[in-house]
Design a binder for these strands. Structure first.
Length: 562
RNA sequence: GCGCCCAUAGCUCAACUGGACAGAGCGCCGGACUACGAAUCCGUAGGUUGGGGGUUCGACUCCCUCUGGGCGCGCCA
């Protein structure tokens, strides 16, 4: 829809430019007007040209409109054109055009909803990347939902996407987990062992210790932690990691690749990354440590990469990891982090820039906190361990679809309230059901139609000339509104992909579902009028196609019955 | 002390990357099932977009400042 209009305007601009004499014409921006009374679609091009032409926007708009009319005015597409407000060019579309686009949607289905803006560009999306020292909490879940949806969107938009989880398996944290497990292990065997100061106190630590006893008995009982830390640490974090992978899988999030930090060290990638920086003259020594000159790229201060004692900093692994991303050929690097990590953006951007990635090819999506509620009361903490509520607990209680959808009902960097009790209610307060119900309701209509032997919607429109013609019977204002809304989807989708904002699709789906519910209550789909019934079944089918597409992007199912 | 994010209807949040009269849901009140699923629909009310200034044809959006919240500022990971 956008394309047809762009072409019409493009043509008119060329005509006008014979007088203007501009070397380049600005991009044409087609918008969906806020208010339906303003028109079906609008162009802001005249306002965009005021600065260049130094003339009032409405005058320019008039010239463009003349150009459009002179060029035939897109006779198949446009009904009326008018200039409004400061210089908007508002278009009304012919019903015939809308019906033709609807037929196209029904014929091509999902492929007509996707645009290939990615053109196969390689995008790497890293998300969740939780430390394997404990189970995932709800905050991680939100990151997982957003990352997963974003990847679905980017893939559908033609990008070559890789979903990756970075495992912090090299540092002191996993060792501390190992030590915690070791302490529990000794305690379970009846020893009076001290628990490490800042050790991990969750129940899962004990479970791991029990597992080790089951496997190896008391083999390590008389050893010091220093003697067997490697075994305990590895065993513990690998078990944790398996749990995390399981939690994510049950949440419907599958990663393409898991990158181990330890492996970067073992393969010498940390060393070689630093050497590469050295060769670029971006490393220097000061106070016995080695520093990366990140201020060169706009960071607040330079960062230590090798400590005085010769150990690498955590940041050194990050350098290696992000260099590795570029070495693997990614054009764009997207990191999804908890909002509390925002301070790390400049240094990572510096690294990527140092290795040649343009600034705008690195994007960080910050995920804000989830405030968990129950009956409106905050429940951030739970259990004696004082741990955050785990993702698994919430998913088990509420369900994966609902949880994902709610995580996607807000912009990522906006705080989110998640009330477990409300989420479980099958009520109007729950937006997931609202959208899914529209889908299920349509399925139910189809079942009903079949029972009554009404001609089926299943034959493809392209093979059914009569059906194609019957779409012209869709003339009720609610029907026209729905058709237009359906045709907006590709624009919403494209916007979601370009801005990396999955929530736009969530909102769109709620709006579309709303239009459908409203229509359903006002008009009957199945009636004695066979042709009209058929046309309306097609409209229903189209709504279903788009609902399904959008829900798929969000990673949420579209059930035929609820 | 420095830096980043947030502030929009009573509540929870949108606003298409600077566009038109700022929109939904919830909540309140009142209505709609002997016809395709009432997990739905219909109808009102609700605003100086935290305050002030600036940039321009045009600002919730960009700049400055103040207020009030959140988070970062380690040779920790």
């Amino acid at each position: 829809m956008k394309q047809e209009l762009s072409e019409i305007i493009q043509k008119a601009l060329k005509v006008c430019n014979a007088q203007w004499g501009l070397d380049t014409l600005p991009d044409i921006d087609i918008e969906i007007p806020k208010n339906e009374s303003m028109g079906d679609m609008a162009a802001t091009i005249a306002m965009g040209l005021t600065k260049i032409l130094k003339r009032p926007p409405r005058k320019i708009a008039e010239e463009i409109v003349e150009g459009i009319k002179g060029g035939g005015g897109g006779p198949d597409v446009l009904d009326t054109i008018e200039i409004a407000g400061p210089g908007f060019i508002n278009f009304r579309l012919k019903k015939e055009f809308l019906h033709a686009k609807l037929a196209q949607l029904l014929t091509e289905e999902h492929s007509s909803l996707r645009t290939d803006i990615g053109r196969g560009h390689k995008v790497q999306v890293e998300f969740v990347s939780a430390n394997p020292t404990g189970p995932l909490h709800v905050g991680h879940g939100r990151g997982a939902a957003v990352g997963n949806a974003l990847c679905n969107i980017l893939k559908a938009a033609g990008y070559d996407v890789q979903k990756e989880f970075y495992i912090n398996d090299a540092g002191l944290q996993v060792k501390l987990l190992g030590e915690s497990v070791f302490a529990r292990y000794l305690q379970l065997l009846g020893n009076d062992a001290p628990f490490p100061e800042d050790g991990y106190r969750g129940d899962y630590v004990e479970s791991i210790a029990e597992e080790i006893i089951k496997r190896s008995g008391n083999e390590y009982q008389n050893r010091s932690f220093e003697e067997c830390w490697d075994f305990f640490t590895n065993y513990a974090y690998k078990m944790m990691l398996a749990d995390i992978a399981k939690d994510l899988k049950d949440f419907g999030v599958i990663f393409d690749r898991w990158q181990s930090e330890k492996e970067l060290h073992e393969k010498g990638k940390v060393q070689s990354a630093l050497t590469a920086l050295q060769e670029k003259g971006l490393l220097y020594e000061k106070d016995g440590a080695k520093w990366f000159h990140s201020t060169e790229f706009g960071d607040d201060k330079d960062r230590v990469v090798v400590k005085k004692d010769g150990e690498y900093t955590y940041f050194a692994s990050d350098i290696a990891y992000h260099k590795d991303k570029l070495d693997r050929g990614f054009d764009t690097v997207i990191n999804i982090w908890g909002a509390d990590h925002h301070g790390y953006i400049p240094r990572i951007r510096s690294v990527l820039e140092a290795f040649g990635l343009p600034k705008e090819k690195f994007k960080v999506i910050l995920i804000q906190m989830v405030a968990l509620l129950r009956h409106g009361e905050p429940v951030q903490m739970s259990k004696r361990s004082g741990e955050f509520v785990t993702l698994r607990e919430v998913v088990d209680e509420v369900g994966a679809d609902i949880t994902k959808f709610i995580f996607l009902t807000r912009r990522a960097d906006s705080q989110l309230e998640f009330d477990i009790e409300v989420a479980k209610e099958q009520s109007a307060e729950n937006p997931v059901f609202y959208v899914q119900y529209a889908f299920a309701r349509i399925s139910s209509i189809f079942r009903q139609a079949e029972e009554r032997g009404v001609s089926s919607q299943r034959s493809a429109v392209s093979e059914d000339v009569g059906a194609r013609r019957c779409l012209a019977l869709l003339t009720e204002t609610e029907e026209i509104t729905i058709i237009k809304k359906l045709l907006h989807y590709p624009m919403v989708f494209e916007g979601a992909a370009l801005s990396c904002e999955p929530h736009r699709i969530t909102y769109y789906l709620q709006e579309l579902a709303g239009l459908f519910h409203s229509y359903y209550n006002k008009h009957r789909v199945i009636s004695d009028n066979e042709a009209l019934t058929n046309a309306r079944l097609y409209l229903c089918k189209a709504v279903q196609i788009v609902l399904k597409e959008g829900l798929t992007m969000l990673g949420v199912s579209a059930p035929e019955r609820m």
